[in-house]
Nucleic acid binder design. Structure first.
Lengths: 223, 223
DNA sequence: ATAAAATTGTACTGGCTGGTTAATTGCGTC
DNA sequence: GACGCAATTAACCAGCCAGTACAATTTTAT
């Protein structure tokens, strides 16, 4: 990866040319534009205009629009991944760990609307570009195994019911967290903004936790 | 609405020109194309080609692309509305009524993927076109009041807990049902197709019912 | 029958937009 | 200080595509 020249950080500092920074800049802008307008809706000229560089550079580094989109999608995933390891569930009892996981997921989705929009757009495209990315798949397996661990602990301890499936539970948690961001516009257009105020969101989150926990809990357990 | 002329059905029968059928045809095709490709991705020429009529007619009846999209969105809503009144919950005990409602919603979403895609696309557009439609709002209030009725009955009867909010519960049911269709491509790209087989879907639906009921149930009730 | 209105076909256009050609500058190396 | 390569710039192009001009034809009203 890194050329073992004297190209440490010092030597790159005074450069006028800075290819990596240019590419990062392009990706940053591209992600926002694609997230906002979709693949066909985004304009290369607009992306270029909001960049510190030019349209020609976009084609120089990324080839064509679709490749840029694919890279922007990966960048979006990479960006949310960074935020995810801030969650520490070690040492918590299973039910608290699960509650905290749901809360975290809910908040984390809410904090990354551009990522959500990218995923929405990707779903519109039948995940055609996601399928081709090897980089992305690895991230999500961690989520499943983490959940599997919590479930196993809870079952061993008797407070979770048997027969819980980690992937299905992940699906459920994702559904509530994702929908809350993805469908906010239509939902609030149809039913008013009540659910998307601060108080409404707190309620929704608590309700999501409640529903997941109520489902997972072993009824035989608490007398 | 209906002009009280001799324009009953007989007089329209021998027509060569049939404006209403032409418009319906255009809307049908437009809905599919917009659902598949989005607003900016859809091509008027493609829509015209798949119609029995010509591009000129699209502009004659609908003015421009955005208006056609707005009308197609309304048509999508109108189409799903038709399927919704097939659900009869009268006479069922509250918990069974709620279970049946969740099952129905889940299935109904799954049976109308094009509608789901239109709503996804509309969310990408921040519901800009949905907001302008007076026609659509009315439909969804029925869903809330139906749910409110079930909740009220259940609470009166003691089997549902107090403090349940119909809109929030609708949000939750919608989230699970919607996400199941909207995010199928990315989810199955990331986690494999297991959840979207016949058996997987049956499980997911049962799990959704379970989670909603577990949340609504009054724990004090069943000894 | 006849005029007026509604509907339809053909051919076209103009601006947008993804992508390119070619010339120029910066940078490390010998 | 010239050579080679990477990075950058500016001007340009060709095809696409929403939307139109105009005329022809069909239907309805009288």
């Amino acid at each position: 990866m890194d050329k073992p020249l004297k190209k440490s950080r010092k030597s790159t500092q005074g450069w006028k040319q800075n290819p990596q920074a240019v590419q990062r800049d392009i990706l940053r802008v591209a992600m926002r534009e694609f997230a906002e307008n979709g693949l066909s809706g985004a304009r290369i000229d607009d992306i270029a205009a909001k960049t510190a560089t030019s349209k020609r550079m976009i084609y120089y580094y990324f080839g064509d629009k679709e490749s840029l989109y694919a890279r922007a999608l990966e960048a979006a995933y990479a960006k949310v991944r960074d935020g995810e390891d801030k969650l520490d569930l070690a040492g918590l009892p299973p039910d608290e760990a699960l509650a905290k996981l749901v809360e975290f997921t809910f908040d984390h989705h809410r904090a990354n609307p551009d990522f959500i929009r990218m995923v929405m757009i990707e779903n519109i495209h039948h995940a055609a570009y996601l399928k081709q990315s090897k980089m992305i798949r690895s991230l999500n397996e961690a989520a499943i195994s983490q959940l599997a661990g919590i479930i196993a602990r809870g079952q061993a301890q008797g407070c979770f019911r048997p027969g819980l499936d980690p992937m299905m539970m992940h699906w459920q948690i994702s559904a509530l967290s994702f929908f809350n961001v993805s469908n906010k516009p239509t939902f609030s257009a149809l039913f008013g903004p009540a659910l998307f105020t601060r108080a409404g969101q707190d309620d929704l989150r608590a309700q999501a936790v409640e529903a997941i926990l109520a489902y997972a809990r072993n009824l035989e357990d608490t007398p």
